[in-house]
Each structure stands twice: as structure tokens, then as C-alpha cells.
């Protein structure tokens, strides 16, 4: 069900952009207004979410860890998996963000000849890492259309990405990795019954959206060619706040940019916010130093005690009349 709803939503975006991109009066809407609105939504939605998270107190350390905490000198301490210092936390965060260490620990339980066997399972880690680095490189590469003169680093990345020089324009390595990795992540949801059971439209929709973005990009580069000089003129117009719609940009371009705008606008309200969330994750970014430092609950106010002395003072006469023994006469 979620699968069909998500696919329908992405196809609806494609159809709307396709039709809109061919109506001359609507090209400004799909080429200028929608991208700007989507980008502003992304920027401020993202910051709003992060600030909102930062306002939630995290009163205590939450050491869900994959290793031995710092204790006694003769017990081996797992410095990166269970850090008790800031440097250790930086190391753990770096490994998590750059190499997806916690996904690398993924295991798989299987029944084999009557035994329950746990074994490593790295495919998810590999596809996730491949997808994220490919997508990041693709995003950086696209800056060649948004900058003039193009920074050398971006040109170098573009050149390395196309270093196999297959065809003209050359095939990018990241395009291949992106499609394969997103395809894997999608097939995993589709064919593994346990993963499929817990999959929601919010899981399928980003995958379809990413696949559609990749597909339209590749189609535009290799099959339904558009005039790249005009595309850059449009992109530069957006980046320099002098938006223009040049002549003769094909419908495929409007589909591509509308899909990307949808991704930007959807981003702050979706699971994709793990981009900011990974930095805010209390189980990753707090040192496990509960036994070294006093952590005080931030909303703590001194509790109101009613001591026995005050009680006795209040009810002294009644207690005396009833013959109850008093501590102070």
C-alpha cells in the first residue's frame, strides 16, 4: 500500500512538472519560484528542527555502547566505542558520520542445521555508504552549474568522477554507484519480508524520489539532451538572484529540477533529517562519564520537603489533645 502511494506521489510530481515545463507561462513557476521556495523551506526548516532538538534537555548520559566503559586499569577500555573524553566522542562521531560505524556492526541471525548463527552482514553498510558518498559527490559536482568561475576543486572532482572517459559526455562513476546503491536499498525493502513489514510510505517515498532524480538526471545527460549552456544560465540566474528562463530547455530539465525541489522541501519534515540528527544524537555525542562527573537534571528545582518537625509544629495542639507522644514538648 505504502509502496503504491509513494510511487503515485512521485509520478504525480513528474507529470505535473512535465506538463508545467511545456507551458511557456508556467516555466517561471517550475524553474524559479518552486526551486526558491523549496530551498528556503529546506534551509529554515532544517535549522528550525535542529534548534527544536537542541531545546530538549538531555538530563543524563545515555551510554548505549558497543564496548567496555572506562573503569579499572586492568580492564581493557574501548576508547572509541565507549569514550569518556571529548576527544573520544569526536572520534566516535567522526567514525559514525564518515564511515557509518554502527551500521558496520550490523549482524544477521540465521538458522543453520538447528543452530542459530550470528554472522556479519555488510551489504546494507556498503550500499548506504556508497549511496551517501555518491550523492554527496553528485551534489558537489552540480555546483559547476551554479558558480562562475568554477572553483578548481569542483572541476577536479568532476574530472575524477568521469575519469573512465566512457562515451561523450563521459559516464560518471557516482551515477552508476548512486543507481546501484539506491536500487539495493529499495530492493531490500521490497524483498526482505521483515523489512517490508515495517516499511511505511515515508520510507518508500524518499527512495522513489531519489531514484526519479537520478533517472531523470541520467536521461537528461545521455538521452534527452538539453542545452547545457542554457541550463547553466538558468542556474546562475538562481544563484545570483537575477532569475531568467532561457529559451529551449527541454521538459526533462523541468522534471528534474521539480523533483529536486520536492526533495529539498520534503527534507526537513522527513526521516532524511538524520543528516542533522546524527549530530544531535545523545547516544553518540555524549561522553560516558557518569561515574566521573555529576550530571544535574536541567529542570531540577529544589523539592518541597515537609519535615516531621514542621508537621509536629502544625498539629501540636491536636496531637496533644489526642495523647500522641510528641518529640518536643
Amino acid at each position: 500500500m505504502g509502496l503504491i502511494v509513494s510511487l503515485g506521489a512521485v509520478l504525480a510530481i513528474v507529470v505535473v512538472a512535465w506538463i508545467g515545463g511545456q507551458v511557456p507561462g508556467l516555466q517561471g513557476l517550475f524553474g524559479i519560484v518552486v526551486p526558491y521556495v523549496a530551498f528556503v523551506t529546506f534551509l529554515f526548516g532544517f535549522m528550525y528542527k535542529v534548534v527544536n532538538w537542541a531545546r530538549s534537555p538531555v538530563p543524563f548520559r545515555i551510554p548505549t555502547t558497543g564496548g567496555q566503559e572506562f573503569s579499572l586499569p586492568w580492564i581493557k577500555w574501548s576508547k572509541l566505542d565507549n569514550p569518556s573524553t571529548t576527544a573520544g566522542v569526536v572520534g566516535r562521531m567522526a567514525l559514525e558520520i564518515l564511515l557509518f560505524r554502527s551500521l558496520f556492526r550490523n549482524t544477521r541471525a540465521e538458522h543453520r542445521s538447528g543452530w542459530l548463527i550470528y554472522g556479519p552482514s555488510k551489504w546494507l553498510w556498503l550500499a548506504a555508504l556508497g549511496f551517501h558518498y555518491a550523492f554527496f559527490t553528485i551534489a558537489i559536482r552540480h555546483l559547476r552549474l551554479f558558480t562562475q568561475p568554477i572553483p578548481g576543486l569542483i572541476e577536479a572532482i568532476d574530472k575524477i568522477d568521469g575519469m573512465f572517459q566512457i562515451g561523450a559526455p563521459p559516464i560518471y562513476i557516482t551515477d552508476v554507484v548512486f543507481i546501484l546503491a539506491v536500487g539495493f536499498l529499495f530492493c531490500r525493502r521490497l524483498f526482505l519480508p521483515k523489512v517490508r513489514y515495517i516499511s511505511l510510505p515515508a520510507d518508500y517515498f524518499p527512495l522513489f524520489l531519489l531514484l526519479a532524480i537520478g533517472t531523470t538526471g541520467i536521461l537528461m545527460r545521455f538521452f534527452f539532451r538539453v542545452d547545457i549552456v542554457n541550463v547553466k544560465a538558468l542556474a546562475m540566474g538562481l544563484a545570483s538572484f537575477h532569475p531568467v528562463i532561457p529559451e529551449g530547455i527541454g521538459a526533462i530539465f523541468f522534471i528534474h529540477i521539480t523533483l529536486v525541489s520536492s526533495l529539498f522541501a520534503y527534507f526537513p519534515f522527513s526521516k532524511l533529517m538524520h543528516m542533522g540528527g546524527v549530530f544531535m544524537s545523545p547516544t553518540r555525542n555524549l561522553a560516558n562519564n557518569s561515574r566521573m562527573k555529576m550530571h544535574i537534571n536541567p529542570w531540577r528545582t529544589p523539592p518541597k520537603f515537609h519535615t516531621y518537625e514542621e508537621y509536629e509544629e502544625k498539629y501540636r495542639d491536636l496531637m496533644k489533645d489526642a495523647g500522641i507522644p510528641l518529640e518536643r514538648e
Binding site: L143, F146, T147, Q148, P151, A233, M236, S240, F241
Partner: peptide, 13 residues
């Protein structure tokens, strides 16, 4: 990045 990098630079096609 693209916005402040291009600031004040005209780059006609």
C-alpha cells in the same frame, strides 16, 4: 555557497 560565491559577479552566458 553558490549564493555568496557569485555575489557581485556578472556571468552572462
Amino acid at each position: 555557497f553558490a549564493f555568496w560565491y557569485n555575489m557581485g559577479k556578472a556571468a552572462p552566458a
